[in-house]
Design a protein around this nucleic acid. Structure first.
Lengths: 266, 266
DNA sequence: CGTAGTATTGACACTCGTCAATTGGGGTGG
DNA sequence: CCACCCCAATTGACGAGTGTCAATACTACG
């Protein structure tokens, strides 16, 4: 009765070794948040090396944190070692708070830079700094929309559809922040991470990617994804052009690269 | 390649007949929000008959809506007719807005009563009515926490674990609003609805329930769930007592039956 | 040139979906 | 009051989708 369980499922595939960097770092390290060298000068900026945690579960994240550069991902661990990746973060995305009490980790996928926009209690934020509050709400709303979409995917779509759905989403998001080129976009993830994000096994992720490649839809290698047939891909994902994702786009409107820039520090 | 698809999957099982009330009502009706008879006197209260929609996708829900009595559920439709139930709502829960742009339906599971606490633009709400704004944020945060938990369930738990997880959650939520008795709680859903909520087929929901019954964990009949071994059930769900759900409980703290009562109309 | 992690692949097992038939209430009209 | 109907619940048989195990390439790095 262990469809997705296998004891040393993924993220802990070779229990004794030093694999699955992010997942392990989530528990084994002593120093909590992965801040090593702080910003050379600016105290509101922190540099986080890849594969270390930016936000640790249970730690009450204080203030508004955003990802300024690099890639990260939100994840949650189940008691038995299974891991689920909630979503990936690109520059401009909100790191914390997702919600005052949604407990999960956020880990750096690449070396990245995090900025703190406000500290301490946020309840008075709307009055003190309304543009920041508005940006915060946009960020949380966008996150919730993606979360909802992901729930539907996991509940009612098969492997290929889920993969297509994720790739379309990431293409659009990378386009929004201007790091996507014409036919491709950067996506620095391993198949293991993809598996944890899509609720699949590593092997099946591989099979699914191969299938999409053979269909001529996408190619994925060296941390980049080449999209050859966006039409077919969106169709597979169940998105009919003017569908959900465009709402997502519209919702994130007014944000060219970062909605946070004007809302800097107080 | 159609694991969860079968064309006339669920919620449309007999395409020609009048089955699947909620799902169909989501599309086929002309009059939008299912408000029939309004509140006998109070214009902020609306009575909604079972199996009609409270909130229709795309309709920009204006203001803050909460469920005052009865059961409802949030759902989303995929283009091909598949349906996914995002979550169930009990009295006291936030109906709208979940997020300014998360598009989905909310349908009444039983006859129920909905109250509007504020209308129009909510951006100034924090300043105008801070207790209501606080309640709204609690409501949205709780929703997000459950959404996140559900994502993990769908991605990384098998049928039995998902079912256990849902039942534990519903037990705790019904306890909070005081409609649960000692060993049982009301849960007016069909197995079809359960299937759509858990990302399973109707048949497999039936099998899963039978298995749980044979294990002596729960009994489900006549719209009620009898929990015989909450320990084992939580264990199955991957909750170790002081785990996530208790955080959920703590998060909803300060709410006995409804956090909205004091934040009534302006 | 080892060593380790990642990607691939094949073989096989198990979970879960699909199809189809049956049962058992709960209405409802005669 | 009974016959009928509709629908939820159940069950069995079978197949598709996905997970698991294990072995083999690839690549990068020291």
């Amino acid at each position: 009765m262990a469809q997705a369980r296998g004891e040393q499922f993924h993220s802990c595939r070779t229990p004794g070794s030093k694999s699955a960097p992010a997942a392990r770092s989530g528990r084994a390290r002593g120093p909590r948040a992965g801040g090593n060298g702080r910003g050379p000068e600016d105290p509101t900026v922190r540099h986080v090396p890849r594969f270390t945690d930016i936000v640790v579960e249970g730690e009450r994240s204080d203030g508004v944190l955003t990802l300024e550069a690099g890639w990260a991902f939100r994840y949650r661990l189940l008691g038995d070692g299974r891991r689920h990746i909630i979503d990936f973060l690109v520059p401009g995305d909100l790191v914390a708070p997702l919600s005052p009490m949604a407990s999960h980790f956020v880990a750096a996928l690449t070396d990245c830079t995090v900025r703190r926009h406000a500290s301490g209690d946020l309840s008075a934020l709307a009055i003190i700094d309304s543009p920041l509050a508005a940006a915060l709400q946009r960020g949380m709303a966008g996150e919730m929309t993606r979360l909802l979409e992901k729930t539907v995917s996991l509940g009612r779509r098969n492997a290929k559809e889920r993969m297509a759905s994720l790739l379309v989403e990431m293409l659009q998001r990378t386009q929004q922040v201007g790091v996507a080129s014409d036919g491709w976009f950067p996506f620095p993830v391993t198949q293991e991470l993809l598996a944890d994000a899509l609720g699949l096994s590593i092997v099946h992720v591989n099979r699914t990617l191969r299938s999409l490649r053979e269909d001529g839809l996408v190619d994925m290698a060296a941390g980049r994804v080449a999209v050859h047939d966006i039409e077919a891909l969106m169709d597979l994902a169940g998105l009919t052009g003017a569908d959900t994702l465009s709402e997502l786009t519209a919702a994130a409107d007014g944000r060219d690269v970062s909605p946070w820039q004007d809302a800097g520090r107080p």
